[in-house]
Structure formats: C-alpha cells, structure tokens
Amino acid sequence: MLTDNLLFIDPHVHMTTRTTYDYTVMRQYGIVAVIEPSFWVGQPRTSVGTFQDYFNSLVGWERFRAGQFGIRHYCTISLNPKEANNEALAEQVLELLPLYVGKEGVVAIGEIGYDEMTAAEDKAFRLQLELAKEVEKPVLIHTPHRNKKEGTTRSMDVCQEHGIDPALVIVDHANEETAQEILDRGFWAAFSIYPHTKMGNRRMAEIVRHYGCDRIIVDSAADWGMSDPLAVPKTAELMREMGISEAHVRAVCYENALTAYSQSGEMSAEDWLNPPSVDQRQLFSGNSVLRGQEPVTQDKPFQTADLSALLIE
C-alpha cells in the first residue's frame, strides 16, 4: 500500500488479460473501481461470435470476478479501430453493438477512433459516434500510436462534426504533444501510464503541474503487455512526492474519471462506498471464482495474502 486513505479508479484497464492476483493487489492499493474498454485482443478475430462472447464476458463474468475481490467493474463497448479494417466482419459487429451498449455497467462507447486512419476505420468510427448519440453515452477515443497528433485532431473534428458535446468525450493515450489541444477544445484528456510506448508517471506529474487537474484523467491501459495494473496508485504517490497537491491527485486519479463516466448513468460512487458485501459463495451462471479456497464473506473478510510464502498447497 502506498498512498494512505486515497481511493482510486483505473478508468482504462483490460482486466480479462490480468490475473486474480492483480485484482487482490489493486484492491490493497486502494483501487475501488475499474473500467474495461473493449479492444483488440492481440490477434485478429475471425468471426462475429468471438466478439459476442468477448462482450458477454465484459458485462458478465469479468464484472462478477472483479466484484468477488471487492472491485466494481464497468466497461465500454465498441468495435476497435484496428479491426474495423476487416470490413465484412466489421459490419456484423456493428450490427451487434446495440444489444450491448444499453447493458448494466456499460459506461461509454469505446475505444473508438483511428489506427491507420483508413476509410474503413473512418466509417466505423462515425457509425459508432451516431450510436453513442442515440443512447446518450460518453465516448472513449483511442488515439493512434502512429501519426498521433493528426489522429487526435481529426478524432475531435469528427466528434464535433457529429454534434457530440466534448464534455462527453474522453480522448485517451494523450501526451505532451496533444494535451494542449484536447484541453483547449473542451474534451477530457486521459493519459495511459504504460512503460516505453505511452506515458511515464514522472512526465504525468509534470503535466499536472503544468495544466492543473481540470479534465485530466490518469489510467494504466494495462493489458497482456509489460504494463502495470498499479499505475494509477503509483502515479498518485509519485505526484505527492513531487509536490502535487492532494486535491489535484484525487481529481486526476479518481474524481475526474467518475465525473466523466458517471454521465452514462451507469456509475456512481455509491457503488463502492456502499457496496454489497463480498460473498465468495456466490456463483455466476452456476460457476464460482473460487478454486478450493475458503470463501471470503461478511464474517470472514479478506486476509492479506502472504506472497512470499514458498509453500503452495
């Protein structure tokens, strides 16, 4: 545990790629809620059925699994930009989306936007913006790794062309080169603390020092790569060490994500401030998350795991 008494939200983390061990440690470090955007799963999917099962797991099993370890789980639903380029499949996935965007715990349409800025990506992006408008949900924008600056500008242009209020749009994977424009135009700027490819947390602290805390959001974007599901609490601690005020730390590591995504009507601080007590005797469609352990219940709370124990039995 690093920062005492602070609660955290990690508003971009791909928990289906992470272990239960991560959930337990995240909880110990003060993460009370996570948002899992639907994304590319490392290799191209070959049929619409795998998208459907993926969406089912985001609103189903993963939400249950997180809850079993004391973390509230939300998600965003979309066809990701990269896979929009398989146009025949994309069309079927786009038809499927309306079934999911209204489900409990779905806080936005996303991550959508551009990968290589192809015509197919543009088409899928615009159709999903229209869907977001129709169901009045926020939008999570993935800004591209390559040609990021232009991709970021164009993503915001297209949102505005479709008449979407910037206050409903979170522009993610921002950096020093894109932050100013995102904030000037009234969008939320989210920063993914991900080693080597995205932001580092010392740089993040400098950004908060420079811009303050308005409309700035910190996330981990942790997935199956060398990423860190503790990126949000670690960044909070580093920011405090570097002299950023606690109010600003709380805003960028908790409150802003809540404000942005609670516009969906699907997320409220009540969810974790007054949570249902953890009861690991519960089942999801008949299946338990336990593998022989003593279930944690209201009467038998979490024991901090002794991770250094050599004996596994």
Partner: peptide, 15 residues
C-alpha cells in the same frame, strides 16, 4: 515528413 517530425517531437517530449 510532417508525420515523422511530429513523431520526433513526441519522442523528445518523452525524453
């Protein structure tokens, strides 16, 4: 050329 220059600026910003 413009895309490469943008990329250099990102790299510099990230040290």
């Amino acid at each position: 050329a413009r895309m490469l220059s943008d990329y250099a600026h990102e790299r510099w910003a990230a040290k």
